[in-house]
Structures are given as structure tokens and as C-alpha cells.
Design a binder for these strands. Structure first.
Lengths: 145, 145
DNA sequence: TTACTTGCAAAACGTTTGCAAGTGC
DNA sequence: GCACTTGCAAACGTTTTGCAAGTAA
């Protein structure tokens, strides 16, 4: 893994420690390679790899990873939070298929610019945004129709 | 209240009953006039008006109101769900101030068209979308800066 | 009459936290 | 050594549910 230095750096800067547990969690997060995950899934993956990391540590580390700019919370599904690795990746938005759960990532420069313009019009200083379009992917749309 | 017919209609169609509790909840939802609310707030408002509706009934009725197209879930704040009345109102998106919690609603025809175009490009049949821009309103931006 | 609906209290769920033992720096 | 970190289990706040009694149609 190449980018773990960013987290290391972040911890040092905050006077926090790099523990084996945090390393294992970070490694697991990078292993998702951009796939969305929730804390429970992360915890199960860690256990399967014989990493002795408690659920509590997973929950305690997630806010640190967010603050370090490594992951972000994405749209909530059901009643729990989902996250994705964003470190080293370009910003993007999501289309979520209601049929099969497939997630399409997309990026539109035009959309970004339009949002900047809309913020300016409302005297709003935009920091981040989340756009999720729900509907049906080409496969599922065929079935539903 | 004028638009309660839609819910009445929906219930009849599903073989469900119009009870005093459901009427009270519906009335209260229309009373929010588009302000965001959570189930607990709704329940408290009902109690203040001497409507004997249990929390359980509030929670059980919300999914019905969503299915009937009367309310929608909006972006989650903290760990619980927030809803808003959408019946009879135009679609809109939100800007959320991280400083004071203020919500700015906005609508951009250009944004809607751009999304349609993006969906088409990805062979995606978009049904609904939620766009939330987080940042700081003009007042709070001044304080932060 | 007969399903649907209610309130209650208990359960369930994801998440957070107090604590005592352990450990990076 | 000292502050930070851990795992555990209990606590938390929101939401769901089993049940027996009540009620709309």
C-alpha cells in the first residue's frame, strides 16, 4: 500500500498513535478499492483475515479516516451509514439502481460549475455536495418495462 | 385542509382504513408547511394538540405517507431520519448550512435538464434524485472567515 | 364480522461509551 | 511513564414488533 502515509501523517499531527488495529483498518479500507462499505462489513472482513480488531475500534477509527480525508460518508441506505474510499480518487456522484443495487459513478464538470453558480446566486459558500440519482440501470429498466 | 383526499384515496386503494390517528398525523404533516420534521417532533406536536396518537402509530404511518407520495425522506441529520411534505409542492434541492443549520431550498431547471442528459449518457432511467450542498450561509461564512 | 389498527412495552438495531488493562512513543 | 488505545459489555437513541384489545367498513 502506498498511500498509508497520509493517515500516518494525520495521526502524528494530532498527537495520536499508529496502532496495529488502525493499520489493519486502513489496509482493509484501501482493499475496498472504492466499493461502498459499512462498519459491520469492514469488521467482518477484518475478522476473516484474522485481524483482531473489535467493532468498537472500527467505529472509533472511521471518524479519524474521515477527518484525514481518506474516506467519506455516502448516501445512507436503510438505517445505517455507508462509506467509500476517496483518497487519491476524483470527486464523483452516484446513480443507484433500485432494481439490482448497482452503483454507477459519474463526474460532470458542467454539473460542478452549475452548482458553483447556484451557490453564488444564493450567497452560499458550498463546501461539499452529494448528488444521488435513483432509478433503474439499463438491464433492470428492461425488466420493469 | 384540501389535499387529504390523496391519502384517503391511497388507503382505499390498498384496502386500508382511515382512522382518527391517521387523520391527525396527516393534518399535522400538512401543518409543517414544508418545514423538515422528524417522527419525534411530529409525535410531540400531536400530543400538544391533545391528539392521542402513539409514537408507534407515527412510525407506522410515515411509510404510508411516503408511498402515497405525500412526504419524502430528506437528507439524514445525525442518526435519525428527517422528512418533508412534498405533496402539492415543486421538486427542489437543498443547501444546508453547517454553521447554523439553516436550509435553503432551490430549484434549477438547468440542473434538472443536465441530470436527464447524464442519465441518458449512462443508459440510466432516473426516477428521483437528491442533491444536497453543504457549506456556509452568508451570515455564517462571514463568522468563519 | 372480520380484518385492519391501535397502544403499550419489550425488542431490535446501529452506534457510542465507561472502564480497566494494555501499549506506542 | 504517561497519555492514548484497546476490548468488552453496558448504555444509548431511534425505530420496529408481538400482543391483546379496539374499531372501521
Amino acid at each position: 500500500m502506498k498511500d498509508d502515509g497520509a493517515f500516518r501523517e494525520f495521526l502524528k499531527q494530532k498527537g495520536l498513535r499508529l496502532t496495529p488495529e488502525r493499520e489493519a483498518i486502513l489496509r482493509e479500507v484501501f482493499d475496498t478499492r472504492g466499493e461502498h462499505f459499512d462498519p459491520e462489513e469492514l469488521h467482518i472482513s477484518l475478522r476473516q483475515k484474522d485481524a483482531n480488531v473489535s467493532r468498537a475500534s472500527v467505529y472509533r477509527t472511521i471518524p479519524l479516516l474521515i477527518e484525514a480525508g481518506i474516506i467519506e460518508e455516502v448516501e445512507r441506505v436503510d438505517k445505517h451509514s455507508h462509506y467509500e474510499l476517496t483518497w487519491g480518487r476524483e470527486h464523483h456522484d452516484h446513480m443507484l439502481c433500485l432494481g439490482c443495487g448497482k452503483v454507477i459513478e459519474f463526474l460532470s464538470q458542467e454539473m460542478e460549475e452549475l452548482q458553483d453558480r447556484l451557490c453564488a446566486e444564493h450567497g452560499f459558500s458550498g463546501q461539499t455536495h452529494t448528488l444521488e440519482i435513483k432509478g433503474y440501470c439499463s438491464k433492470c429498466a428492461r425488466k420493469v418495462a
